[in-house]
Design a protein around this nucleic acid. Structure first.
Length: 420
DNA sequence: TCTGGGGTCCTAGGACCC
DNA sequence: TCTGGGGTCCTAGGACCC
């Protein structure tokens, strides 16, 4: 039997900020989502007072009162530190699944002479030394239990490592573990299960798996088996995305079609870069447009429209054109729009693209152009060259009032060291 | 005034085929 | 009046994750 670990950065975004700004240690810090809208990360000092996901404006006062350092999201920084952290994991265990920006599953092949807890501690210390980031490790026979163990490691241990492989330990921990904290049990399932008198992970584990499968879905059945220590989920290798979304809320509401077109073109170009990065093309796209769902003094409007290409493409020009056509069908004058976006679908590998027998093929020329654009932007920074449709002034640009420097990805923003 | 962004998987139901 | 059985594919919507 193999052992699974879940390794996960503690308060990841906050920790990334602290790596380059030690004055943030031991003081309350929060990180906001794009547009400075919601709270997406909190340091331990402020967790009790500010809930995750809360709209920031509702907690601005609390933050002022407690001298909280408020930061805008700096994804360039978090992404680059994440890469370094994942490299460290690889050094310890080659069987690795990158699960999210701050988490990875590891699978260790069990050998009698190896002390996994010892190794987990070493991994933790090494990651801290090499990247400055604190992580927690959970050890278990299944991924779902590794998630549980990680939870305990973070909340209840000093060392940041917890081993739940022992059956007796499982009994004890699961008896106190609320179902809403189980990986895969969200708000809806929690409510439904609680109505049936199931409140703890232990109660769920000991339920009738096939009955709950019939009532809910195979997903719940799998969770039950995983809690029993029977692995249903293995590591997953990275696959190319099946859909690519690019969207943003506007810094201030937008009313003019021209501004919407510029913003949408910008997101479309962004989506195309992601598409080409994974060497794919898309055959269908969908555009959506909406007003603010929170502003009850104005009517809420939300609609999407999709269209297809005769052959899959990754040409930004074609995708911008098509997106703008969709947008025109959605646009109603007089509304204050809050967000638009584009979803690329029916994505296929570049190399196996089926071409249209009757269409003029301009593919090679288009491929070359896109390649040049990407090369220039990779070399000199994103947006060095862009499409005119994306606009220049960008009045719809998102708010980001408290962003730290992009220390690791931008030449102009490298950290400076002062000689004394 | 001010509420993120980007994904995946599963299921049900309809359309369609022979 | 009486109208089969079995299968696939597609889509929309829901739920979940970080």
């Amino acid at each position: 039997m193999a052992t699974f670990s879940l390794v996960d950065g503690n308060n990841f975004y906050v920790s990334c900020e602290r790596v380059f700004n030690p004055s943030l240690e031991n003081r309350p810090v929060i990180v906001l989502s794009n547009n400075d809208g919601c709270v997406v990360a909190r340091s331990n000092e402020i967790k009790k007072l500010v809930p995750i996901g809360a709209p920031y404006y509702q907690y601005r006062k609390v933050c002022e009162q407690h001298n909280v350092k408020v930061l805008s999201a700096n994804y360039a920084l978090y992404g680059s530190l994440s890469d370094k952290m994942m490299d460290c994991f690889q050094y310890f265990c080659p069987n690795r699944e990158l699960y999210s920006i701050d988490e990875a599953f590891l699978r260790w092949e069990d050998k009698a002479d190896q002390d996994r807890v010892e190794q987990a501690l070493l991994l933790r210390n090494t990651v801290k030394r090499w990247t400055g980031l604190p992580v927690s490790v959970g050890l278990a026979p299944t991924k779902t239990l590794a998630k549980v163990a990680n939870h305990i490691a973070k909340k209840k241990t000093k060392e940041g490592v917890f081993d739940i492989r022992d059956k007796d330990v499982q009994e004890k921990i699961l008896a106190d573990f609320p179902i809403e904290d189980i990986w895969g049990i969200g708000r809806q399932l929690t409510q439904h299960l609680q109505k049936r008198g199931i409140y703890t992970a232990k109660a769920l584990r000991d339920s009738d798996a096939s009955l709950l499968r019939r009532t809910f879905s195979v997903v719940v059945e799998r969770i039950i088996y995983e809690l029993r220590g029977i692995a249903c989920l293995d590591l997953e290798t990275a696959q190319p995305r099946k859909s690519i979304l690019s969207s943003r809320s506007f810094g201030t509401p937008v009313t003019a079609l021209g501004d919407l077109e510029e913003a949408l073109s910008h997101y479309a170009a962004n989506a195309c870069v992601k598409l080409r990065d994974q060497k794919s093309r898309a055959q269908r796209l969908s555009v959506f447009l909406r007003t603010s769902p929170f502003n009850h003094s104005e009517p809420f409007y939300q609609k999407s429209h999709s269209c297809s290409f005769s052959t899959p493409t990754h040409d930004t020009r074609l995708i911008i054109q098509a997106a703008k056509r969709c947008l025109k069908r959605l646009y109603k004058p007089g509304l204050r729009y809050q967000k638009t976006g584009i979803l690329l679908m029916d994505i296929t590998e570049e190399s196996v693209t089926q071409t249209d027998l009757f269409a003029a093929t301009e593919n090679k020329k288009s491929d070359r152009l896109m390649q040049r654009v990407d090369t220039i932007n990779n070399l000199f920074g994103r947006d060095t060259v862009h499409f005119a449709a994306q606009g220049i002034q960008r009045p719809w640009h998102m708010r980001s009032d408290h962003r730290s420097p992009r220390y690791t990805t931008c030449w102009d923003e490298l950290p400076r060291v002062k000689a004394i």
